[in-house]
Amino acid sequence: MKNKIINRRSFIKGGFGGTAATVLSLKSARAAGDFDHYPDSMGVIVDLNRCVGCRSCEAACNKEQGLPEPEKPFNDYSVFDAHESGGHGGAGRRTDETRYTVVNKYELPEIDHPLYRKSQCNHCLEPACLTSCFVNAYTKTPEGAVIYNADVCVGCRTCMIACPFYIPTFKYSSAFSPRIMKCIFCYDTRLKEGRPPACVEACPQEALTFGKRVDLLEIGRKRIRQNPGGYVNHIYGENEAGGTAWMYLSPVDFGEAGFDVHVPHEPVINFVRDFLSIVPMVLVIWPALFAGFHLLANRKEQNKHHHIDGGEE
């Protein structure tokens, strides 16, 4: 099994030590954003029109992933009204060390029933968590899941900083075996064998549809085409953060249903490239440049015009 998981990071492996390697690796990293590595990877499309907020998915996930029993049972709907701090874009619950997925309620004046949104890891195509981790704890599997290896994680929490969807959470309660807690697309128990994740299977409304990402995009477009009044013409996740495996359809502007509509439409790593691209240059040019300065300075030791601006760029 192990070698079936092509470590996606090998595409952008280079290292800051080897300068030439870094240049090359950055080239391939750039290319990586332009095509889909795993054309057959799976995904899920979530249809907000169908979700009734029954929380079956939360319950199924809790069981499947062996998470601790929640304070309030899963058939207690008062959780929707508790305004916990922490959800981005205002109130609402968020993922944490006890839950990989949460459903939130949004009451909107323009529609007569409340909207519910399930959130979990979106399993990005070019995951920010993966690209920001300095010990390579994350892997994007060919099946589409972004999984995490607790054995190498140092607990720096950069992945949490980097994830544009505020998904990874940290087991702050533990001193001796803390770890990142996040949805893994039920990779080891289901996805690996081609079975849909527990939450999808548990959904009584078929609000969650599991399938190949390319097919899901087709399904999404078809639903929008057939019912243009019922959906906004956008599939959230098609391009957000460079594309995600979990995508959403909504009857209202995504911003109103608690989505972050400011998430850039390109992979997070693109914002870091500017810096990454100067690294090899500094490594190559600086030694020669400063050794040269040294020779010059020694030649005209007397030069009094030199002001002190040692490291100034």
């Binding site: 030590g17 690209t131 920001s132 300095f134 190498v152 140092v154």
Partner: peptide
Amino acid sequence: RLPYPMVVSLGPAAVLF
């Protein structure tokens, strides 16, 4: 696990590395 990024598991494409 402070030395992990040096010796155990290297993620050289990350800024923190």
